[in-house]
């Protein structure tokens, strides 16, 4: 009885409100999302595969401007800049993803604690967020890196423990909003257990926001990694990293070797934009508030 009513309602609605573009927006978003993910995986794999090439020194071919054999040119040791850039990007992407995942877990734990733990916990978490946002992000990263003696762990830990505040706010707000929803009140009135409400209603509501927040966190993490490495606090000079490449390029700037800075920077921007596209199209796909767009 109920099923047939639902069926009738659904078909009727579909006939009356047939979308003009017949769902092509969602298809475009899906394609963009998959395309972006594939592009990033390709960059990472290419970078790892090219790591030996990236450090291969060839003094016969040093300081070459971009040409067919070396599309991004070569540096003062004859290393191919395209290979170095890709290797650096894959380091940045892997480090950024790992650090952002850690940060997002912190965000979920603190956001959920703030929303569910009562006013005192809420106040403490909010205060911690204010504190984190109070020290300029770059300065905080420098301090953490300094405390850990610089190098890989300095930048990895720094990025992992400083990117949670904005996502923690989102998670907190989502849970608070969800708790007020009529269907949660109904489930509670029906005597459902807390666990069952959390698993069946809360997590499906909050998870999409978390996922989108996580993906949109990657670009920040990657840009901060590049910045802090550029300043000399991050990855060591022998590692392939965009920050290292760009900070070395500064020395050769006045010599007119523009390709050392321009192409690696553009490649970094491209990767960040691809992450942004992946995040926003995923949001368009799974965010219930925007599913009609």
């Amino acid at each position: 009885m109920l099923a047939s009513w639902q069926e009738g309602y659904a078909t009727q609605g579909a006939v009356l409100h047939l979308p003009r573009s017949s769902g092509s927006n969602r298809l475009v978003a899906l394609a963009a999302c998959i395309g972006a993910a594939l592009a990033l995986v390709a960059v990472v794999i290419a970078g790892i595969a090219l790591t030996p090439v990236a450090s291969a020194v060839d003094f016969e071919a040093k300081n070459l401007a971009p040409c067919l054999a070396h599309p991004f040119g070569t540096d003062w040791m004859g290393r191919d800049m395209l290979a170095r850039t890709l290797a650096g990007l894959s380091t940045s992407v892997l480090l950024g993803v790992a650090a952002a995942v850690v940060s997002s877990v912190i965000a979920v734990v603190l956001g959920a604690a703030a929303a569910l733990g009562g006013p005192k916990v809420d106040a403490v978490v909010n205060w911690m967020i204010d504190l984190m946002l109070g020290i300029p992000h770059i300065v905080l990263l420098v301090l953490i890196s300094y405390a850990l003696g610089k190098g890989f762990w300095g930048v990895a830990v720094g990025i992992a423990i400083t990117h949670w505040p904005s996502l923690a706010r989102v998670v907190r707000a989502e849970i608070l909003q969800c708790r007020q929803a009529p269907y949660i009140q109904a489930a509670r009135a029906l005597g459902k257990s807390r666990v069952s409400i959390a698993v069946r209603h809360m997590i499906p509501f909050v998870f999409p926001q978390y996922l989108v927040g996580l993906i949109l966190m990657f670009p920040h993490a990657i840009l901060h990694e590049a910045s802090i490495t550029f300043l000399g606090f991050g990855l060591p000079p022998e590692q392939p990293a965009i920050g290292v490449i760009l900070s070395e390029s500064m020395t050769y700037l006045s010599a007119g070797m523009w390709w050392l800075a321009v192409f690696p920077g553009l490649a970094l921007i491209a990767v960040v934009l691809v992450f942004d596209i992946a995040g926003s199209s995923l949001r368009a796909l799974i965010d219930p508030h925007r599913s009609q767009e």
Binding site: L223, S227, L246, L253, A261, V262, L268, I269, L273, D276
Partner: peptide, 22 residues
């Protein structure tokens, strides 16, 4: 704006130095 938000500030500085100073 989206392009700018994805651009590292220090790279923008490098390019500006290259174009306007060098």
């Amino acid at each position: 704006c989206y392009l700018l938000a994805s651009t590292p500030t220090f790279w923008l500085g490098l390019v500006a130095l290259m174009v306007f100073s060098v």
